[in-house]
Write a protein that binds this DNA or RNA. Structure first.
Lengths: 262, 262
DNA sequence: AACTTGTGTTCCATATCATGGAACATTTCC
DNA sequence: GGAAATGTTCCATGATATGGAACACAAGTT
């Protein structure tokens, strides 16, 4: 017994390493582990485990309920429901945004759903003179943006009533939008071609959390002069791949029916 | 010199205590601290700090970007965007739910907004025979529930189009609903009296995150025979107080200097 | 460009501090 | 009621974290 997890040795503090391992397994496990679970999964002595949990609990990092379950503590909960959790999402995706930018040269955006609108929360500018507008913080409707369509395809409530006509190509009826969303869902990425602004083309793909829900959307935007059908196909592949990688980093497992792991 | 902050003495592991303190300050600080910030705020030796951050980083609990900022790591981000973050919210509120239940004897519910519906995520049953229905997991419309109105008053998008008439007293026009929401926002709590089901009365109050946004709603539900106007007023006070306490625990600080006492 | 300041990591001898076993509480289940 | 399981506290031991200094690296300064 007590085969210690093969924690690396590269510069670190062992006690902290152990505590970190504990915290991670508490945060990652599908349901709250008990003292005993942690004891066997970590291989630590009862006394050590007890002490470490005490420390973590005192600082509000874990919470132990009466039934013996160990859960993420108030500090974690507080963070999870704060705006700053978006910032950490940005940080997690930044390398991918950069990579997409390099590969395509176009503007890359990351957005979340706020109410019934999409809000851009990160952007990497394009290399060209034409097309640089900073959209961070701006909110846009869902029905006429690629980002919005991604959320709709992911289960966000469809907008009702008349849809604002931003351009001649904007989808202004719910039924036409619904058709587009169906295609989007099947295809795995969305497109809005001159539907928000004439000559502006955007494609977008979903970033999923471990539960499978769409937590963010990733987009490539540019003028139709550069985003030709051929390049759109190529960029869409890159985009979907990047979004998928981020989703994986977020713990999403495609096709996985039920998380049953130890 | 570096007389360490009087970190508690009650049974714990000191190294873990220190690391926990670090992690907490990273999670709580408004903007990502740098190595130097942490050094001065913790009073740890550079070498110790470096080692601890290494450990935390290796386990994905923190992330250090090129600019030297230390941010919550992927494990935290992943958790924050997973469904389990709700569970920890429940755990945080449970004592308050219990207390409300004891004080009122009625059914207490905690709900979050999912899409354009409210989903009950926790419940404490009432003491009476009449009125016990487990609503956990059920989703209900916003326009005819006290819980829903709380979210609408908190800035959730108003439902459009015709509102389903669940009872003769359901508000079925957007304008009448908007009036109700205005009152709700001013009053600080919502009421739905026989609007979802005849004879069913519910009141609800908002739980806010540090950003001020409404992350959950707390409700008291019962038959109109028991929830008389007088008791509604009394219960509303309790409800708002409980919701406020939870909000405070979540880091919410009311703008106006009303925060005093408690 | 050379110099200086600032920042973070690695090294190493020291003794502080975490460790695990066992005894001690506490609760749960027969 | 006793017994088994679960978690906490105690304690002597030595393994392990510690902080200062040296080192590497980057950024600003003249």
């Amino acid at each position: 017994m007590a085969i210690p997890v093969g924690t690396s040795r590269a510069g670190g503090t062992q006690a902290v390493d152990r505590a970190a391992t504990l915290l991670v397994s508490i945060l990652e496990s599908a349901q709250p582990p008990t003292f005993g679970d942690l004891q066997s999964s970590s291989g630590l002595a009862k006394s050590t485990l007890s002490r470490m949990l005490s420390s973590l609990e005192r600082h509000g990092l874990v919470l132990r309920s009466d039934d013996g379950a160990v859960r993420p503590g108030p500090v974690i909960t507080r963070f999870a429901h704060s705006d700053r959790s978006h910032e950490s999402l940005i940080e997690l995706t930044r390398p991918h945004l950069q990579h997409l930018s390099q590969a395509t040269g176009e503007t890359i955006n990351l957005a979340i759903l706020v109410g019934d609108e999409v809000e851009q929360i990160a952007q990497v500018d394009c290399r060209f003179l034409i097309g640089n507008v900073n959209w961070v913080g701006q909110r846009l409707p869902t029905h006429c943006t690629a980002l919005g369509k991604v959320f709709l395809a992911g289960g966000a409530p469809m907008p009702r009533g008349p849809l604002a006509r931003r351009t001649p190509r904007t989808l202004t009826t719910v039924s036409r939008l619904a058709d587009d969303i169906k295609v989007t869902a099947r295809r795995g990425w969305a497109i809005a071609d001159s539907e928000l602004e004439p000559g502006l083309v955007a494609i977008a793909a979903p970033v999923r959390a471990s539960s499978g829900s769409v937590v963010a959307a990733l987009s490539i935007t540019g003028p139709s002069s550069r985003l030709t059908p051929a390049r759109i196909r190529e960029f869409a592949r890159l985009l979907v791949a990047a979004a998928h990688e981020i989703s994986t980093a977020m713990g999403y497992q495609p096709k996985n029916g039920k998380a049953g792991a130890a």
